[in-house]
């Protein structure tokens, strides 16, 4: 199968959906000739013109509001917030408006809006451009939260997100846009709420999403040398969450390591750990381990930045601590 970059997979999904549905359009900052901060929209302004590729002033709240208003009146906008850190400027529109409009209006209105954004550390862009804020959105009823790791997943899930009738936070990771992965030529979509087993194994379950899938795969390769077989569960969508897939893997392995780049306090990782404890305590042969980012603003200095987020070695260490038991 051909292999394409993650950002190219995004571009393909957008093109396919824009070609098949004239109600789909793009809105965001620097998405015109510039092609988006990570060039996922390269060339789309030429292909679709400024009517469907709306290059806006720096007005994050108005971008999301524009997406909501267009979604309420028959369109399927994909609104881009360049860095997840900038969603802080638009939280009313996302949390009080997009997430709640359908429910609080008694289903009179609905908001088929995709908010594409990206987060994560590793690029030396410091505390206001490196955060992992998925837990904020995970916490808000009414939002779906999608965090694809691979080219295959990002394409199939973005197409599903665009077709969804409710708001979707589509969170990418800045360190994986150039990763190549297999993507079939033929059209496909991936349903929300269906985890993917990124590696099958017997001894321990590793729950990981977004860039942490790759750190976990690296760790699993290392652990294999020591005869420890890891199963990696990538939920792909945090809301809805395929908790059954996690539980069923834990029932098989009896051990769980939850990995998250986001800092641990109030994290999705903590919630996953709580859910598994509630649902599958009797199947656990060891305490659940959480490998997460440190509770710190992401530092600029590379050594400090790397020390603030999990790496394969941290995952290896955590697995060994519970596999011994």
């Amino acid at each position: 199968m051909r292999e394409i970059e993650y950002r190219e997979a995004i571009r393909e999904a957008v093109i396919e959906e824009m070609d098949s549905d004239e109600k789909v359009f793009l809105i965001g900052e620097d998405i015109g000739v510039y092609g988006g901060a990570f060039r996922a929209y390269k060339g789309l302004i030429d292909k679709y013109g400024p009517e469907r590729v709306i290059n806006t002033p720096i007005s994050e709240a108005a971008i999301i509001g524009a997406g909501i208003g267009a979604a309420l009146t028959g369109y399927r906008p994909i609104a881009e917030i360049m860095f997840i850190d900038f969603t802080t400027l638009t939280m009313d529109q996302i949390v009080n408006q997009a997430a709640k409009i359908r429910y609080m209006t008694g289903d009179s209105l609905n908001v088929p809006l995709v908010i594409r954004t990206q987060g994560g550390a590793g690029r030396g862009v410091a505390a206001q451009h490196s955060q992992s804020l998925e837990a904020w959105f995970y916490h808000v009823p009414g939002l779906k939260v999608v965090m694809p790791a691979t080219s295959y997943d990002v394409k199939g899930l973005l197409k599903t997100a665009i077709r969804d009738d409710n708001p979707v936070m589509f969170i990418e990771h800045k360190m994986i846009y150039l990763n190549k992965g297999p993507v079939p030529e033929e059209e496909y979509t991936i349903p929300f709420g269906k985890a993917d087993i990124k590696r099958e194994g017997e001894d321990v379950t590793i729950f990981a999403y977004s860039n942490m899938v790759f750190k976990s795969l690296e760790a699993a390769g290392e652990l294999q040398k020591d005869g420890i077989s890891c199963e990696i569960i990538d939920p792909r969508t945090l809301v809805p969450l395929d908790i059954e897939a996690i539980i069923s893997s834990v029932k098989k392995t009896g051990r769980l390591v939850v990995v998250s780049e986001a800092c641990r306090r109030g994290s999705v990782a903590s919630d996953i750990s709580a859910m598994v404890t509630e649902e599958a305590f009797d199947f656990l042969d060891a305490p659940i381990k959480i490998v997460a980012g440190l509770n710190t603003p992401i530092p600029y200095n590379s050594t400090l930045e790397q020390a603030s987020i999990p790496h394969a070695a941290d995952i290896v260490k955590a697995v060994k601590e519970i596999v011994k038991k």
């Binding site: 359009f25 809105i27 009517e51 709306i54 709240a61 108005a62 999301i64 509001g65 524009a66 997406g67 909501i68 208003g69 267009a70 979604a71 309420l72 009146t73 028959g74 369109y75 906008p77 529109q93 408006q97």
Partner: peptide, 14 residues
């Protein structure tokens, strides 16, 4: 107020 911008885009596109 921001939502009206989107409805405005919608009317313009229509």
């Amino acid at each position: 107020i921001p939502i009206s911008v989107g409805a405005g885009f919608s009317c313009k596109m229509d």
